[in-house]
């Protein structure tokens, strides 16, 4: 795992899946997390996503993001009771804080949903490289020009992060202080940092475009990908199983399960 990528290069079965199958798998987790309000039901996709993430070597990624997950979880617990009606017996009654069972379960369910979405998304980016994401986008029918732009941006992005770091060090060596002053002063201090970063980036647009056209770049013709994969047996099994899960959880919800 590098500073600019969450992809973990392993040989697990999820890593070996075609990007489209991984997306279907993660989509099933997202839909399962979204469909249920009851935290007991929402906990199932959360556990599946978390165990899968650990199995593919995603613990370092989760650890890195755990403050965000924890903060969002707590904010969900605090905020959602304010936006839902009370119901059932009072379970917390401490000073001004009075929470009914429904409010508490509703807030817990929403916080779990946030966690499902983050852990599910993390599972996808932990097991799918940038190249696989771009090639997968093309394979599901997204126009080549758009895929090319995403692929190029993903390739340029680490370079620009490095450039931003270098410019920051250089400007700080000249006395730039990004952490002092009020909000407006601190924002203004970013001007000497941002100008070199984006002028460096845009300086090469014309030459890069000419280089592409000199090599016959044409967005309207069909293109091939060096690392394009095809759907194998396991990919189809995972995709079909994911669709079955999606249909199943929607059916459960329509039958009245997982509601509050």
């Amino acid at each position: 795992m590098s500073a600019t990528s969450l992809y973990v290069d392993r040989g697990t079965w999820i890593h070996r899946l075609d990007a489209r199958s991984t997306l279907a798998f993660v989509l099933a987790i997202f839909v399962s997390g979204y469909i249920f309000d009851d935290p007991r039901f929402a906990a199932v996709p959360l556990v599946v996503a978390f165990v899968s993430l650990l199995a593919v070597g995603g613990w370092p990624n989760f650890k890195r993001l755990s403050p965000i997950v924890a903060a969002l979880f707590v904010v969900g617990l605090i905020v959602w009771p304010l936006f839902t009606g009370p119901g059932g017996p009072t379970v917390i009654d401490v000073g001004p804080l009075v929470l009914s069972e429904r409010e508490l379960l509703f807030a817990l369910g929403r916080s779990e949903r946030i966690a499902v979405f983050i852990v599910g998304g993390l599972l996808f980016v932990t097991t799918t490289s940038n190249e696989e994401i771009v090639s997968g986008m093309r394979q599901i029918g997204i126009p080549f020009a758009f895929c090319f732009a995403v692929g190029t941006a993903l390739r340029l992005f680490p370079t620009f992060i490095d450039a931003a770091g270098t410019v920051k060090q250089a400007q700080e060596a000249r006395g730039l202080d990004l952490s002092d002053g009020n909000l407006i002063e601190r924002l203004r201090s970013f001007v000497p940092l941002l100008v070199p970063v984006f002028m460096t980036a845009f300086r090469n647009v014309n030459t890069q475009s000419m280089a592409l056209e000199a090599r016959g770049f044409d967005t309207r013709r069909d293109r091939t990908f060096y690392g394009a994969s095809s759907m194998g047996g396991v990919d189809w099994v995972v995709t079909v199983a994911s669709l079955v899960v999606i249909v199943g959880v929607v059916g459960l919800r329509l039958a009245g399960y997982g509601t509050l």
């Binding site: 020009a145 090319f148 732009a149 980036a201 647009v205 475009s209 967005t219």
Partner: peptide, 9 residues
């Protein structure tokens, strides 16, 4: 297209 990529990056 290159501008899209550079703006995004």
């Amino acid at each position: 297209i290159m501008l899209v990529a550079v703006v995004a990056a």
